[in-house]
Structures are given as structure tokens and as C-alpha cells.
């Protein structure tokens, strides 16, 4: 069963209940043609197959459980807006840098087209949403990546938005929480994508110099340049169960070493055993866990006023 998950290229991603400005809208906006197609696929919109236990589940039900299978606890991938609604207090979110636009510095074939498709698919302008809000009343700066947007890949805009959010946290003296979900650096922006790793890491070292807290939450999947920059730099690193976390992707490793990877390799539980993750937290407990950690840090240390 787990082997099967490892081998599959596509993971359980669902796309209902888009929200705009924090408000829930029933369905994503479709073009007329897509709508007709969707009407024919009503069943698929109602049902979803769990990648963990193969059960067919009512989408309505798993939305209630924040996209967790109520039979086997499989954590489906979750859109960034849904994540914000799950973690932050109602109406507390204020988004940063909504207007920042992606451009195509390399004239890379098909890049603009890809961006437009991702925008249409997700209703978002890029692979990360940043802003500030509250968790049970405690103020935080939060960045949430969206694996549905070009595999959550990091180009200039993703790097810049995260860096600005960290700088805002330094200015406001607030803790930072980053939810990672990414295939890595975005190849279409070439070397500029790679440099976002250095930029975000540098911003985090400033945050750390200021004695401010950074909690990194690893979700499925966190790989490549994101793993090799901000995702693994948390003062505290949490992970959702069974998330794929690694530097190189499993297929690349299998091709390099020419053998199958052991079961559970590069999953959250494996990383915790190897000492790279502090805790694995079930999605239903995530907000409370974040709150508890934030609360203890809000009390300050011995020498703090």
C-alpha cells in the first residue's frame, strides 16, 4: 500500500471549496466548456478515492475533516486558502503582496502559458500566500505554499514574498510560521530561482539574530530547493504524517543508485527517526500544537522583559 503511494506521480489533490478573501465559495470558477465537462463528471466531484486505504469517500465528508481520511488518517494535500482557514482565527488574516506578478526573465518556452494555467486552476496568483493573522489570539506572520500551483515551485515571486514576510515579522517582532509544499526551485526562472534559496535563508538568519521564533511545518511534498533552504531551517520543525520530505526526489535517487528505495523512505516518520523533524502532528491537532508552542515562546526567556 505504501509502496503504491511512493510510486505514484500524482498525489491526492482535490480542488473544491476555493475561497476568496477568506470567504468560502461553493465551486471554483470554470469556463463554460469546463463546466459542461464537469457536469458530466458529477460523480467525481462528489466522490474521491483515498490514496491511503483505497476507500471511496464523500468529498463533503473529508472537507469536514480538513482533507483527512476518516478511516485511515491519510492526509490529502490541501490548498493554501483552506490551510489558512484551518490554522488562523476567523477573519484574522491580512494578506501581503497580493499584487506581485510573475514575469518570464529567460523567455522560457511555454512559461507564461504555464503560469496562466496554474492561476486558472488554483485561483491564486502564485505558489505561496503570505500575510499575518492570529492563532487563538496570538499574532503571527504566516506563509503557506500551494502544491497545486506549478508543484509549489519557488521562483522569484515565491522567494520575494517569503523574504518580505520574514522582514515584516522582524519589523513587527512576530514569530514566523511557514507551511512548505513544493517540488523545489522553479526551473523556468533559471539561476534566479536558485538564488531565492540564498535570499530566504539570509532573511531567516536575520530573524534568528533578532531572537524571533520560526516554526517550519513540512507538508506533502517538501523537496528540492525548498528543503535545502527555509523548510529545514526552523527553530522547530513539524511535519504532517507521511509527507514526502527530501532533497532529491525518490525517482531521481532510484535512477542514481539503480535500486528501489525502502518502504517509507523520505516520509515524515523516517525523517523524525533520522533526527530532522521535531514532531509529527496530525492535522486535527496542528492549530493547537502551534498555539502551545507560540504561547510558551510568548512568555519570553529569563532575561526578557
Amino acid at each position: 500500500m505504501i509502496k503504491e503511494i511512493l510510486r505514484k506521480k500524482k498525489y491526492g489533490t482535490i480542488n473544491v471549496n476555493k475561497t476568496e478573501n477568506g470567504r468560502i465559495i461553493p465551486y471554483p470558477k470554470y469556463t463554460k466548456k469546463e463546466k459542461e465537462e464537469k457536469d458530466r463528471e458529477v460523480e467525481n466531484d462528489l466522490w474521491i478515492r483515498c490514496k491511503g486505504c483505497d476507500e471511496t469517500l464523500l468529498k463533503e465528508d473529508i472537507i469536514k475533516t480538513s482533507y483527512v481520511c476518516n478511516r485511515c488518517d491519510y492526509h490529502f494535500r490541501m490548498g493554501a486558502r483552506d490551510r489558512i482557514n484551518l490554522i488562523l482565527d476567523v477573519d484574522s488574516f491580512m494578506e501581503y503582496d497580493v499584487e506581485m506578478k510573475t514575469i518570464d526573465p529567460l523567455d522560457f518556452p511555454g512559461y507564461n502559458n504555464k503560469i496562466n494555467k496554474a492561476k486558472e486552476k488554483t485561483g491564486e496568483s502564485e505558489a505561496v500566500i503570505t500575510g499575518e493573522g492570529r492563532i487563538n489570539g496570538l499574532a503571527v506572520v504566516i506563509c503557506v505554499m500551494n502544491a497545486d500551483f506549478m508543484m509549489g515551485s519557488m521562483g522569484s515571486v515565491v522567494g520575494e514574498k517569503i523574504t518580505r514576510a520574514i522582514e515584516k515579522a522582524i519589523e513587527k517582532k512576530r514569530p514566523v510560521i511557514i507551511f512548505s509544499a513544493s517540488g523545489g526551485a522553479r526551473m523556468q526562472e533559471g539561476i534566479l530561482s536558485l538564488m531565492q534559496m540564498g535570499k530566504t535563508a539570509a532573511a531567516l538568519s536575520r530573524l534568528s539574530n533578532e531572537g524571533l521564533l520560526y516554526i517550519s511545518v513540512l507538508t506533502d511534498p517538501t523537496t528540492g530547493g525548498v528543503t535545502a533552504s527555509f523548510a529545514t531551517l526552523g527553530d522547530i520543525i513539524l511535519a504532517e504524517p507521511k509527507a514526502l520530505i527530501g532533497f532529491a526526489g525518490p525517482r531521481v535517487i532510484e535512477q542514481t543508485i539503480r535500486q528501489k528505495l525502502p518502504e517509507g523512505f523520505q516520509r515524515s516518520e523516517f525523517l523524525k527517526e533520522r533526527g530532522f523533524v521535531d514532531r509529527i502532528v496530525h492535522r486535527k491537532n496542528l492549530k493547537n500544537m502551534l498555539y502551545k508552542i507560540l504561547y510558551i515562546h510568548s512568555l519570553g526567556g529569563e532575561k526578557n522583559e
Partner: peptide
């Protein structure tokens, strides 16, 4: 052994 973490920490 944490390839990602090792690289990230150097950048940091």
C-alpha cells in the same frame, strides 16, 4: 544524513 538541511544551514 540530511542533504537538504546541510545545504540550507550553509546558506543561513
Amino acid at each position: 544524513r540530511g542533504q537538504g538541511e546541510a545545504i540550507a544551514l550553509n546558506l543561513f
